[in-house]
Design a binder for these strands. Structure first.
Lengths: 348, 348
DNA sequence: AATATTGCCGCAATTTCCTGCAACGCATTC
DNA sequence: GAATGCGTTGCAGGAAATTGCGGCAATATT
């Protein structure tokens, strides 16, 4: 039995040096020789090293955390449309608690020879998870881009919403409305986006001289309606008159919790959501929320990935997109008896 | 009986040291040796320890129309969870107007060697589209299942919501509330689900002696919020006091249209949605809607597909799932002056 | 038309890294 | 507690892959 390179070389009618050059994508190989080698490999049944596989007509993996939160389908839609406009096809892989994990999906996508992978709020946003897996992908020269969750030092482009600013915006809005006891509820602290948002929230309150008032008004729970409801319930019991929520879904749960306590939104308790997912203008009450510029972020993520694929890697910075306060009807001014400079009633 | 490592090593033609390295995912093992070991393990019937399971098998395509309507992500989630529970991985392919078409996705999935394809409200539900493509798939013995949109005569299992009944339920509910001029708005008539729902709606009204009242109260428009709004606007102008909508999204648009006309929901105009997508209990007003049993349907679709894959094709009937009226707060009784038997005010 | 230039390929030296042997660690059993 | 069986790991031999360099052919240049 001949050695592998030798065997391929003989089948292709070239020397094993040429085969080696093809496999390592070195320069100095004619297209004719290259295709001869590749064909020989196929004929002999050798698996092509990743990167030389017929990168199937522009297939791109899109890995996302879940679909429950409407912001994720929204992201998926935007990204998919953007990719389609450039001739790429998105394969959406969503993770479920009991379903396939991210690693399995990545393996599958690699097997399928995707041109690149987009990670939207996946494991990369979890700071407690080992990130060596991404280093491995990087080493394989697989173009990847993160959305909402940078991992510095990996050289992977990342498109994020500026969560620190988002936290500040929410805090400032409520303080301007006269609130003093402002609760913060969000998902598990292991997510970098939660950490950042909380940091911005706290920094903003400290600057406004309210830091000590809200030290005990932070509750973290799962990222869904029920989590928001239970966290909000605790915060309301502790006297919070306003709630900053980690997602719109949690905000809806918070509204429900407030009402279960016999209070009204926004008359008694103000609620601020996050993301401005679709349909949030249809809720009761229409939700004041900190919009994440999903459209722009999706387009930017697609552009970054295409740059990576095309071989002109942009500098691997984190592109921060600015969130924006969308004032609807779940927040209202609060008259504080001790506050002489109470803000005016908001225009509805 | 030899020891395990030894046995595998002999079968694979390597030393037990190499086998050990493969099982522990240690570096320094050639791909060839690795695959030899893995194959040997399969041959000898040993279970692969960790994430070394073959994932290429057990890939299932899931083709869906869009992600805007929250019911589709919901379907995707349910189906994906169900597939994962049986060791299959779902690849979600969503169609966008300018994006990749269903045919492209099918081609891609075939290239990838999927075990089967699930079509959720795809082209198969469009009666104006040529269905020979599915015949082709069928001829290739590819297991496929339709959700919401049967094509009789193809022998493809289909899991649907009973749209005729859904139309009847909505109509009956509104008639019982005293409404007489009931509008119907939905998506393009080329979708079989629209046809059926309209048929059920009309049949029910006819049976109740109201057929002639609503002949001119049907408006078809695109399947989104804006479509619902424009259709509802026309119907309200024509004096409709209740609206049956083809989707929850359209219903939300309808609510908006009613309010643009200076009327209230449900006091002046009642609105009934369709599907009971997630979040519909949080809308303003909470939407009365005809629930589609997504969970049950998803599970049934997965089961049907697995049966097809396993080679015991169930009889290719259309499995009809019964919808269910979910009464929330977007419908209310209407006192008709000429109606002596006006129904009582509904309990809220 | 002769020659310079460029780029491609093969030989062979060199390097890398796979592999098996055998020793070692660890648990189970007598 | 010793023996035994099983899995792991350090090490060295060696095969396989990489790469520098020279040759060769095709094309451009004068």
């Amino acid at each position: 039995m001949a050695a592998r390179l030798d065997e391929i070389a003989r089948q292709a009618g070239v020397s094993k040096a040429t085969v080696s050059r093809v496999l390592n994508e070195r320069p100095g190989v004619s297209p004719r020789a290259r295709s001869a080698v590749l064909t020989a490999m196929d004929v002999l049944g050798y698996e092509r090293p990743n990167g030389l596989r017929p990168r199937s007509s522009g297939l791109v993996g899109l890995i996302t955390a879940e679909l429950q939160n409407p912001v994720f389908p929204f992201f998926a839609q935007v990204i998919e449309t953007g990719l389609a406009r450039h001739g790429y096809t998105a394969v959406l892989c969503t993770q479920t608690p009991e379903g396939a994990g991210e690693d399995e999906y990545v393996g599958m996508l690699l097997d399928r020879g995707v041109s690149g992978i987009l990670f939207v709020s996946g494991l990369h946003a979890d700071t407690t998870i080992d990130h060596s897996r991404y280093r491995g992908l990087r080493r394989q020269r697989l173009p990847i881009v993160f959305v909402n969750g940078d991992i510095p030092g990996l050289g992977v482009p990342c498109v994020s919403c500026d969560d620190v600013t988002a936290g500040r915006i929410a805090a400032r809005h409520l303080v301007e409305l006269g609130h003093r006891r402002i609760g913060f509820l969000s998902g598990p602290l292991r997510y970098s986006t939660v950490q950042r948002r909380l940091a911005g929230f706290r920094a903003s309150l400290r600057e406004l001289g309210l830091g000590h008032d809200t030290d005990d008004l932070v509750e973290l729970s799962p990222f869904d309606v029920e989590g928001g409801q239970s966290a909000a319930s605790l915060l309301v019991q502790r006297g919070a008159t306003a709630l900053v929520c980690g997602s719109d879904l949690m905000a809806l749960g918070a509204v429900r919790a407030v009402r279960r306590h016999g209070l009204r939104v926004p008359e008694d308790v103000s609620v601020v959501g996050a993301d401005d997912s679709p349909l949030m203008s249809f809720t009761d009450p229409p939700l004041t929320t900190v919009r994440q510029p999903v459209q722009a972020m999706g387009v930017a993520a697609v552009r970054a990935l295409l740059d990576e694929i095309k071989g002109r890697p942009a500098r691997a910075a984190e592109y921060l997109f600015q969130p924006e306060l969308v004032v609807r009807a779940s927040t209202r001014a609060r008259w504080a008896s001790h506050d002489r400079n109470a803000p005016p009633e908001p225009v509805l």
